[in-house]
Amino acid sequence: MARVVVDVMPKPEILDPQGQAVANALPRLGFDGITSVRQGKHFELEVADDVDDATLAKIAETFLANPVIEDWVVRRVEA
């Protein structure tokens, strides 16, 4: 078994209301110097050894992310 991490983020050119709301709140809470926040999703998958990268990429592209508005990165990490 291996652990695979998929990070899904709104595409840079797409409006990210979630991140914007956090960014706007930070100065109100007294935290200065943060110019931008973007909010995405983090998935952790426990994956059998015979699942190849192409399959993982397909899972990310067709299911975990919405390619119309989101980018994604698939990483294998140490279990």
Binding site: Q18, A21, V22, A25, Q39
Partner: peptide, 14 residues
């Protein structure tokens, strides 16, 4: 409140 984007109520409490 504030769009509830981070977590419902998380920003409003402050």
């Amino acid at each position: 409140s504030y769009g509830d984007y981070l977590r419902c109520g998380a920003i409003a409490r402050f």
